[in-house]
Simulated scan of single mutants.
Amino acid sequence: MIRIELGREGLGRTRFALSPLNVAADLLHALRRNPQSVDRPWQARAGEALRTRRLCLLAVLGGGGPHGYAPDFMRPQPPAFHTSVDSALHQVATTSTERIRYELTLALGGHSWDDTPAGRPPRLLLEALQRGEKHLAQRIADEMAQFWQLAFEPHWPRLQTRLEDDIAARGTAIARNGLTHAINQLSPAITWRDGGLDIHTYGPHQLNIDADAVILVPCPVLPWALFCGGDPDDTPDPRAPWICYPSLMPASTSPSLSEELIGNTRARLLAELARPRTTGELAQRLHLSRATVSYHLQILHRAGLLDRSHHSRHVFYALASGADGQPAGVSSPKRST
């Protein structure tokens, strides 16, 4: 678990931000750590971009090292509410030598809390480093620009609207129920407790951070919360912590059945079930309790709108044939939650 001590003043300085380049880095990270969690259209766009432009170094570094950590300089800290792609790419290209060396040490050797033996560094990365950290930063910035152009640029207006709508919805939740309640709704992995944030992670490690603020960044391609930054004071160019959290699904992506007929929650569930998902996965993506999701899934299943299949010990739901005019395709799902 990661613990971020904020206090009331730090909570008051906590803010939201949009970061196009963060979204691109999130997709690379998700594809490496758990590709089955990424929707197929994004898998296809990312794969085509990496393959056609031969962005080999980006694929190696963006997926994270043997311990799962991907260097933070690839996803620069958002200095304002909205940071342009060009500005973020400039931040990447001008990252200090000391910062790059520090982050690559973490990526290849692991954090101090992780004693898992590290594998041999990728040959491609070692070859790039032979030309120096500055060359590495500029090459990553160039490959990130190409990846963004092919995989994201045509879709960004729609994605930006979705992310702005997400932040607006969080603002409404803050106005109605307070900031603490809104933070607790970002992800099942994030909890406000006793003047700070608990971020529940996989693995036994513990990390405690004192911070003046946290930046909250919505992401349309991540199904889980991702922690970045939060460096000790003696770190080269220390960065404040920020959290990428899964953004809400827009109501406009619902199937042909209208919200007025089936309700907002069930419309959002149907929008998520173009591919098979478990109750737990749906609860995490939509920031709902498992009990709430299970209740609505049972009603949709009895109405004939969903197919249900068993794989190992898990139950998967998907749109039934005819629910959106397409087959459900629920054979042998691989991902479990």
Rank of each mutant, 00 (worst) to 15 (best):
A141Y: 01
R101S: 08
T97L: 09
V92L: 12
A80L: 00
Q146V: 14
Q43H: 01
P157G: 00
H155R: 00
A107H: 00
S112K: 14
D72I: 09
A44M: 13
D86N: 13
G62R: 07
A151G: 08
P79Q: 01
F81Y: 07
G110W: 02
R53Q: 12
T94S: 15
W156R: 08
E164N: 07
Q130Y: 02
Q77N: 06
M144N: 04
E164M: 12
R54L: 06
L50Y: 09
M74P: 07
G64N: 12
P41Q: 05
T97H: 12
E153A: 13
Q91N: 13
R162A: 14
P121S: 10
S96M: 11
V60Q: 13
T94R: 11
A70K: 05
H90F: 12
Y69F: 15
D86V: 07
K134L: 14
T94H: 09
E153L: 06
I100M: 05
L129C: 07
R162K: 04
R75G: 09
R54S: 02
Q149Y: 12
H111V: 15
P76W: 03
P41C: 03
L89A: 13
L124P: 04
A49S: 11
D115F: 13
R51A: 11
G109F: 04
H90G: 13
V85R: 11
A141S: 12
T52I: 14
P79M: 00
V38F: 01
I140D: 08
I100K: 00
F73K: 01
Q138W: 15
V60R: 09
H90I: 12
E143Y: 06
C56Q: 12
P78A: 07
R99Q: 12
S84M: 10
C56E: 13
R139E: 15
A141I: 04
T105G: 05
L57Y: 05
Q146H: 13
G119D: 09
A88C: 09
E98L: 12
L124R: 10
A44Y: 08
T95G: 11
L50A: 11
G132L: 01
G68V: 10
G63F: 00
W156F: 09
L124N: 03
T105W: 02
G64H: 07
L55P: 03
A118R: 02
Q43Y: 01
S84D: 14
P157D: 09
Q146W: 11
L150Q: 05
A80E: 04
L159K: 05
P41I: 02
L159T: 13
S96N: 11
E143T: 07
G64T: 11
H111A: 15
G63S: 01
H155Y: 03
L129G: 01
A49D: 09
W148K: 05
T97P: 04
E164P: 00
A128D: 02
A88W: 09
Q130I: 03
A151K: 00
E153W: 04
T83A: 10
C56Y: 10
H90S: 14
Q146D: 15
A80P: 06
G47C: 01
H82Q: 11
G65E: 07
V60C: 09
R162S: 11
E98F: 00
V38M: 04
W148D: 05
A93W: 06
E153D: 12
V60N: 12
R123V: 01
G109M: 09
R139Q: 15
I100R: 06
